[in-house]
Design a protein around this nucleic acid. Structure first.
Lengths: 349, 349
DNA sequence: GGGGTCAGGTATATCGTTCTACCTCCGGTA
DNA sequence: TACCGGAGGTAGAACGATATACCTGACCCC
């Protein structure tokens, strides 16, 4: 009684055995309603609930899931991708009393692997949620070796033999957003589009670029200039300078960016180059961050349903941990274009 | 051997007792160098490290700290305050193999308290880190009742009897940033400043507003119009409309905002009202988010050393958990003004 | 009345560590 | 020779829950 109360204290107070208390709190029956009530009252009075560690040790279920974010503090701050995903994850975790163990490691090589190893070897979590899969992603093999159940949020890499031993969220319809953006720009009269991609080791970067290219082709437009960048603001500025430089072929009149951070930075770069958005140049982002509504002109962008994606990841992970459980995954909205102010009619030639 | 290896597997492989293995990995001596080496080799071979749950159960030390963010997904995404803090926290936690258990709860009443109760009652963490203290913050009493060690990041509420039973990070110098901002604006010739504050139940909101007011007084300027807002973009727009409305007294020529999100939104609100920043109106934010460099004009703002604040919080918490440990807190830079493009000379009257 | 059944419990092994107490050599000393 | 001390270990009791196996009446039925 000196320290925190244990199940034994509750049992004593209720005048029953420890086993009885356990049965009651786990609703496993065999205890009369009257006794159960006494037990519950005692537990409430002592403010007791089962120690997560003891339960974990006993049951080999930690009731926690892990997540490793391999990003610098700056990039993490600039792009709330993780943050939003996490709040979706939590929405699903909280009702079933699961915890989320988060590791933010920098981008030093090895740090990420070390984080996963710790999670697995110290048995701190039942499974992990991955995001931002990379091409030839080493994490799948690692997690398989560590026998740590994992779910990937986003697009997995289906080609080149790197079959994903994990559950992937969302199929088809991924392309909708970019298609809509291209259609939207075409409808506004744009014919020369540009694209600023993210790092090409990211699956979703490559995926989005390809969708863009195929959407162009579907519209019968010429292949567009693509600049590979790095998701950062500085990268976007450099990309814009290349795209808008007077060179062979006409300048694009509209540019799509692989994320909002780059789109916003790109808009400003254009402005510094003497172009007004959207009069001289239309800009489209990706992610629909709150940022997009803050800037001037407000950003036309492609919105993803990140919160629900996070929830679905948890559901999938639970399904992996316990195949019996009926997994009713939430419906996820496909990416869709949010038209605001940064896109407008193509300038006259 | 079927499942994950245990200390017993290591002991068997090394041909020693379980106790010997434990002594070796905890460096508690009494084991010959030769044996120790055999043990370490066996552990490495089996990829074993002690189960965090078992250690926690045994030692009443979970080697994890908790954090509860009571914010909606949107606000969390718009303001990376938590994110940056967390990466600082992790920087300190990772080397000593501590984990961070994060709970993102919405703003529903009771959700926050429930999260803390769970953390404490289920004994999932050794302590928690609080941020954004509120006036008459109920968390202090709650955590004391739960006997959960806590450290507050930021300004505590020293007045009105709400003495904080927690370690507070940073003393003095807090005022530097706002003072510098006021000085900077005065030097540019501004005499009529405005201030958009955050919710007044937040200690730092009130603190910043008061510093602003006293900085004005120190400069011999007249009291400035203050609008209390809510940290959101929409709130900032409304605040701007009130501040800039033609009314009694002249319009301010410069406005300080309690965070960057509001500052950026406020800039755009001003633009929609026909004012150009910084020609007609100077704007200063607070936080120095990456966002500030992205927008046009780039935002003059007050930067906080959030990463190091997070690290210091962990150090302080460790000191609380184990008073023996020599706590060498990192040096934290006081808030300071970062001058960019959103401030300029006061317009001629 | 003896035995079976069932509801309503209790006793106890177990999970993977840590840590205290103890054991066993072996060399040195009186 | 008897004893001591220390180095280098081992045995086993916690830690706080869960789950299996078992116990104990009460009641019913033939």
């Amino acid at each position: 009684m000196a320290g925190k109360p244990t199940i034994a204290d509750v049992a004593r107070l209720a005048g029953v055995s420890v086993s009885a208390v356990s049965k009651v709190v786990n609703g496993r029956g065999g205890i009369s309603a009257a006794t159960a009530e006494r037990v519950l009252a005692a537990a409430a009075k002592l403010d007791w609930s089962p120690s997560a560690t003891a339960v974990a040790l006993r049951g080999a279920r930690t009731r926690a899931v892990g997540m490793v974010a391999a990003r610098s503090a700056d990039l993490l701050a600039a792009d709330p991708h993780f943050t939003v995903l996490i709040s979706g994850i939590e929405r699903e975790l909280a009702p079933v009393d699961y915890g989320l163990l988060l590791h933010v490691v920098g981008e030093e090589p090895g740090a990420e692997e070390r984080a996963y190893r710790r999670l697995a070897q110290e048995r701190r979590v039942d499974g992990v949620i991955l995001t931002e899969s990379r091409i030839g992603d080493p994490r799948f093999a690692l997690l398989r070796r560590l026998r740590l159940p994992a779910v990937l949020v986003g697009v997995p890499w289906h080609e080149e033999g790197g079959e994903a031993p994990v559950v992937s969220v969302r199929a088809g319809e991924q392309e909708a957003g970019i298609r809509q953006a291209v259609d939207h720009l075409c409808a506004l009269g744009h014919r020369r589009l540009g694209y600023v991609s993210g790092p090409e080791d990211r699956v979703h970067s490559v995926f989005r670029r390809r969708v863009f290219e195929s959407a162009l082709a579907a519209r019968g437009l010429a292949p567009a200039p693509v600049v590979v960048s790095d998701f950062t603001a500085q990268g976007a500025v450099a990309a814009m300078e290349r795209l808008l430089a007077p060179g062979p072929g006409a300048r694009p009149t509209a540019v799509l960016f692989a994320n909002d951070t780059m789109a916003v930075a790109g808009m400003n770069a254009a402005r510094r180059l003497g172009l007004e958005v959207p009069r001289d140049l239309s800009v489209v982002g990706y992610d629909d961050l709150p940022l997009g509504e803050l800037v001037y002109p407000r950003l036309t962008t492609i919105g993803q349903d990140l919160v629900r994606l996070g929830r679905a990841a948890v559901t999938a992970l639970f399904g992996l941990l316990d195949p019996e459980r009926p997994a009713r995954a939430p419906e996820i909205r496909p990416p869709r274009l949010v038209v605001r102010e940064s896109t407008g009619p193509a300038p006259a030639p």
